[in-house]
Design a protein around this nucleic acid. Sequence first.
DNA 1: CTGAAAGCGCTAACAA
DNA 2: TTGTTAGCGCTTTCAG
Lengths: 333, 333
Amino acid sequence: MKRLSIADVAQRAGVSTTTVSRVINDVSTVSEENRRRVEETIKKLNYHPNPSAQHLAAGKTNTIGLLIPRFEGIFHSYFAMQVIKGIGIAAERSRFDLLLHITDGTTFPAGAIDGVIFMDVYGCEELLDRTIDEKIPSVVLNHYLEDLPVNCVAIDNRLGAQRVVDYLIKLGHKEIATITGDLKTQAGLDRLDGFVNAMKTRKLPLPEGYLRYGDFGLPSARKAVEALLAMKHPPTAIFVASDDMALETINVAMSKGVRVPEELSIVGFDDNPIASQARIPLTTVRQALDEMGRLGFETLLAVVRGKKRMPTKLLLPTELVERQSCRQTWLER
Amino acid sequence: MKRLSIADVAQRAGVSTTTVSRVINDVSTVSEENRRRVEETIKKLNYHPNPSAQHLAAGKTNTIGLLIPRFEGIFHSYFAMQVIKGIGIAAERSRFDLLLHITDGTTFPAGAIDGVIFMDVYGCEELLDRTIDEKIPSVVLNHYLEDLPVNCVAIDNRLGAQRVVDYLIKLGHKEIATITGDLKTQAGLDRLDGFVNAMKTRKLPLPEGYLRYGDFGLPSARKAVEALLAMKHPPTAIFVASDDMALETINVAMSKGVRVPEELSIVGFDDNPIASQARIPLTTVRQALDEMGRLGFETLLAVVRGKKRMPTKLLLPTELVERQSCRQTWLER
DNA sequence: CTGAAAGCGCTAACAA
DNA sequence: TTGTTAGCGCTTTCAG
């Protein structure tokens, strides 16, 4: 039993293969009569076009490459899966295929794809250069690449941090500290930067001790909050650069008899699913990770379809999610 | 500037396209001399074969489909990304492509793939039936499908739970309770089943109140542990069906003045990255999720290559990771 | 060990 | 609106 081809359909429907091809691709004009007959025959025969043949003949693959760099961190975070979800659903809707590669920075599915999405740049620098050189349409997620002629879609971490400061000020806080993320990452850096900037702009004091360096790991957060709590003038609020660390910060504070939010307000960043489920639901900054994936895909699609030429650089807004880990300073304690 | 083809390489190397094809596919016998010349030419020209053409001519795609059902839970867990990693790295090594689909249960990349991996069965029941009907090679992950003629690779949750009981017994515990996961999932069900079975086999008492039903969510864990702690005879140890819930259990216990592990031993399940970073590093059950992905891929590959016919059903062992959330009962408290 | 030539299944000029 | 036909770039018999 041979796999059936477009010729079988054509024969059974009493038309040429061209006509069948036309109804498959929903292209040009086909008489209502013929279209119906072909569609019926396709259904009856349960015919599916051979994608490889389509790609070869059409000179395009209808496939987007998704490159995930092979560094451990990316597999541990809430991040990657959300982004994949956004990309995946967008691709499904556009009837595009997604070719997944967990790359060590060398392999690349050139020829098999019309364009490529970099889930991150770390470890993919060379591949990225190559796509630029060879003019392969591409988009980089999660990194704002100022100077490179590449499309990119990232989160506005700076503005997110700024909003946190404004929110805490609105609640009456003046002594605000921060526990940073890993400053080797753009997210860590920008969240700190946005925080410091906002504090300066708002003319709030920022004693040196109020800046505590973490690395997104729980132990670093514990160390930081312990130091903060041990200060002569401990802060009344802490902006923690990730939800995981923020939750741990609350744990440590409570175990030391410091009540949250009554005596200490905490704000996180990420909006992990767990943040809302915690004993003290965490006030945090929501980033639309799946949106980032979706927009990355759609930006790339526009380029692939020739509807865009200039590099597009998107910075997605965040949203402050008010829950129960913060409190106005003027409420009785 | 046209894309270069196998003919260009053949011409420049002074051989036929057949010979070039032979060295590309590392097949049949080619004289050392010719092989060298062709390889050089390929490198010099930076030639890459057109995958679509290869697939069409060879009648196979060298591509495996990866189907992720589109239900929310799958994107929230630590689970999916680890499995993807395992599959992805294995695929890379075998020089296979991975076609990713976030499916709503209707779309299917038939024709574009040689075989398919189901990351889960929920929501994919019909697609699975279809692959069986059409004899498309497939493998199901994370579900042990007893009765279906399908390859599957899953975690041995029952044995994992049993090991926990044995471990706690070894530490001298006799009053052991459990907080279950969502019993609508196979993991939740099997972990409970393994626990109950072990307790019976070991002739340990299992008062009704020692079985507390959770759903993998934090609130359910809090409710459960509060009830447990309020009992006339609270347990000396609790087996919690997930790390997230176990960590929350510890939080609640400590906030009620119950010391962990001195007064209460806790064991989790999953070995989340966070489990080891917590204030009280969590003793838990490690499941080799990336291994599951890898083995799933390799099982499928064997079928695709015609090296296997019978359905293979694998149940992967777990490993108890001893950390600091448990303690012997005979130590002074 | 090598090459000529016949497809693989589809699309897209071009002609009708 | 429809059909004829020439490829798309590669693999693989088959004969040499």
